[in-house]
Design a binder for these strands. Structure first.
Lengths: 267, 267
DNA sequence: CATATAGGTTTGTATATGACAAACTCTACT
DNA sequence: AGTAGAGTTTGTCATATACAAACCTATATG
């Protein structure tokens, strides 16, 4: 064994990778049966069985009748992550204020493995597309699909951006989705220049958003915040300057919160 | 290997159990360093290292500087679990209504591995002890510590209750905490008779709650719902009859929601 | 009613994999 | 400069894992 993949080859626990794949399959398939999972993951039946038993035993998955689903233990763990994440604590209030002020959806997101994960969200009283936003909480998004994601990408090293995109490929959602690296790079430059990103029906037709990155000291990206609304309401000067102002202000406040929180708890 | 534990010994993937222990250690220790984790889990340094690398790679944990914490992927997974759990969808509205009606904390919980996990909660305008409730979301509770938990225990087979308690032992939180099986069994009988459970400062001094189980067809326990408030507000007739009525009514409605949801989506 | 079929579980076994120990690197402190 | 502490890498051997194939057990099918 120890089949060197060219370089020094970092060791990994294969069983964890397998378990991870199985969990992902269960999450993706939504209440799959044993055979569904087998078909998805290309591992022998017997082995899958042992994995499922173990995962169930540990509380990572639950079997109800003949169907599997992710286990309740993950709820607790997820909650724990949120509460331990600085940006969640530092940003929660601002997200709510911004949602109230605008009446629309406001998202606080972070980057994770080249994708965007929603840490917190709040819907104003005019917010639409509840179902879409529900789904969004469950599954990571491509960074180049959203305003907040692009705002984060704009802060990254361009090599890193290339790496992420190479790995994921461009998935087209609407006719306005960015589908090549050049366009993306041009837009990232522009985002950097103006300080915020917009998403003009690039992910969902009829929906626009405005987002900006939340950065820490030495320009590290901590996350992003965005406002999302239907094109009918998000247009003209409101879209081009008022909302961007509000979003950048909120990001700024969160950044300050982060800084001061760091100071108060020096360890 | 194949160290038969007496009977036919179901096979398990040891690496998953190890990984699970490491994740638990990280969650428990809150931002531990590499050595902290090693001390907690009694596995050789080298091995722990490999596990951490793998877990990080898969997004289950994240390293910030020298400290580890649970990874953002768990947030998504947790969210996914919630949305796929019937009782969450069926109960969300009722929890909010009850919180508004009473002005206090309302919890929707389920049993998981002999402990209680909060799936959803809502705080009325008079709700207190925010911090305590925040923690509660992160860590499973002992069933015999809470009203909702006892309500669920009361529905279980007494052998199962014994098994759970044997495994966990009695942890005393206040002078009123139940600390022996006999008292517990007596109370469970009473709960079964009256249809709801109360928690009278058994977990936190000055705090009472009233909870009841949410059951499915053939008397399976699906979860529980409870109202929590300071003793000063939760007393007398309000505590002994009004609130129990409201809680049982909410549980009843959720049960109906569950039934009808099941019918609509027969699969 | 017998038989087939699909969904799921168990078991024997070879071999890849994980766990250990010890060597090693790197940083921080004296 | 020297040492201690924290984290990483590597060689090695026992063993945990993954496969295949046998085995159940319900539900359809002739």
């Amino acid at each position: 064994m120890h089949a060197d993949d060219s370089a020094g080859s970092p060791r990994r626990i294969k069983s964890i990778q397998t378990a991870s794949a199985i969990l992902e399959a269960i999450q993706y398939l939504e209440e799959p049966t044993f055979t569904d999972i087998c078909n998805e993951v290309d591992i022998s039946k017997g082995t899958v069985h042992t994995y499922l038993e173990t995962l169930e035993n540990e509380g990572f998955i639950a079997k109800s009748g003949t169907e599997y689903q992710l286990g309740v233990r993950l709820v607790t763990m997820g909650e724990s992550v949120r509460n331990q994440t600085d940006i969640y604590r530092a940003g929660q209030d601002e997200v709510e204020k911004l949602a109230e002020k605008t009446g629309e959806w406001v998202h606080l997101t972070v980057e994770c493995q080249g994708q965007e994960v929603t840490l917190y969200e709040s819907s104003g009283d005019r917010a639409i597309a509840m179902d879409y936003h529900l789904r969004m909480r469950e599954s990571p998004q491509y960074l180049y699909h959203t305003a907040a994601g692009k705002a984060m990408l704009a802060c990254f090293d361009r090599d890193r951006v290339r790496e992420i995109v190479d790995q994921q490929g461009f998935v087209q959602r609407t006719e306005k989705t960015i589908t090549d690296l050049e366009t993306l790079f041009d837009e990232l430059d522009q985002i950097q220049a103006q300080g915020y990103a917009v998403n003009d029906e690039e992910e969902v037709r009829g929906m626009r958003s405005v987002g900006t990155a939340i950065t820490g000291p030495d320009a590290t990206v901590r996350g992003a915040i965005s406002v999302t609304a239907p094109t009918s309401r998000l247009s003209g000067d409101y879209f081009e300057s008022e909302i961007p102002e509000l979003v950048m202000e909120a990001a700024n406040i969160i950044e300050v919160n982060l800084e001061t929180a760091g100071v108060q708890k020096p360890r």
